[in-house]
């Protein structure tokens, strides 16, 4: 679904996730401002083998809703994919929430690289606690928002988390969501080499360590919430790899041992909360 030679950075996780769009039939992409705008191609070229409607930040789900309503009215078969970063999910949250509440026929993919990367790594609501960004130069003071759980509270048909470290799981989730109707939401963890400051050949490794340390939990809801197979064993804390192995990134280089312990505690809390839903 995406051509080689596109404008993504070396080791870009978003381009990896975009390749998996071929699991979805008749896609029409709606892309707000962000890294994906550039990766999808600059005029007069396009890197995508499907229609792309570029839109302003906060309008992602309103434009997607308009396309979806019009295709339904005009009898056109299409899967509207709202493809956004964590930045667009921040600024367009009211619209995202309204769209989910209306149960618009839209598949939403949030590729979450935990900061506003396209403008130069500024902190977002998704930025990890203590992570350094250009607007949190000594480390972010607030928690990362759990967007997928917030979307689950909208009682939509399908919510899942995914990771570019587990492409088979991600592809299955794209395929499953693509076959469903109604509002579907997939939150993809996309570790960003320049933004997180790790070598560009280590994207998959970092993504996997996030899951293996328990820091990113793969789950799926389709009427019932289940921990996805790659994450299952990490419900047991003793099976997780040491958190420091995941935190071995430039944005966390300043963390003290106490900070790491605090993050571990927050991860345990996150698991406890999620397991209550499963």
């Amino acid at each position: 679904m995406i051509l080689p030679g596109n404008a993504s950075c070396q080791g870009c996780p978003i381009a990896m996730a975009m390749r998996c769009l071929d699991e979805i039939e008749n896609p029409v992409l709606v892309i707000p401002a962000g890294c994906s705008t550039v990766i999808a191609g600059l005029h007069p070229k396009s890197a995508m083998k499907c229609p792309v409607v570029h839109v302003p930040f906060a309008s992602t789900h309103s434009v997607a809703c308009g396309l979806s309503e019009a295709y339904r009215k005009l009898g056109v078969d299409a899967t509207i994919v709202a493809w956004m970063g964590d930045g667009a999910a921040d600024i367009g949250f009211a619209t995202l929430s309204a769209s989910a509440t209306r149960k618009d026929d839209i598949l939403t993919v949030v590729v979450d690289n935990e900061a506003y990367m396209n403008t130069g790594t500024q902190a977002s609501l998704s930025t990890f606690w203590k992570a350094k960004t250009t607007t949190s130069p000594t480390g972010k003071t607030e928690e990362k928002r759990n967007l997928a759980l917030v979307m689950l509270a909208h009682k939509v048909d399908y919510v899942a988390t995914a990771s570019v470290g587990y492409i088979r799981d991600l592809r299955r989730k794209f395929r499953t969501a693509g076959k469903k109707d109604g509002f579907r939401f997939i939150h993809v963890h996309t570790p960003c080499p320049p933004g997180w400051r790790f070598p560009s050949e280590k994207t998959v490794e970092v993504a996997r360590k996030a899951v293996m340390s328990g820091a990113w939990i793969l789950w799926e809801y389709d009427g019932k919430l289940r921990i996805s197979p790659p994450s299952e064993k990490y419900a047991d804390k003793s099976k997780r790899i040491p958190l420091k192995e995941y935190l071995n990134q430039g944005r966390f280089a300043h963390l003290s041992d106490e900070d790491v312990k605090e993050i571990e505690r927050k991860i345990d809390e996150e698991w406890d909360l999620l397991l209550k839903f499963s």
Binding site: N26, P27, V28, T37, V38, A40, G41, L42, H43, K45, S46, M48, K49, C50, P51, V52, V53, H54, V55, L67, V76, D77, A78, T79
Partner: peptide, 12 residues
């Protein structure tokens, strides 16, 4: 814009 078209609307 219809599905199947390899076209971008309002790219940079």
């Amino acid at each position: 814009i219809l599905p199947g078209m390899e076209v971008a609307l309002n790219a940079v």
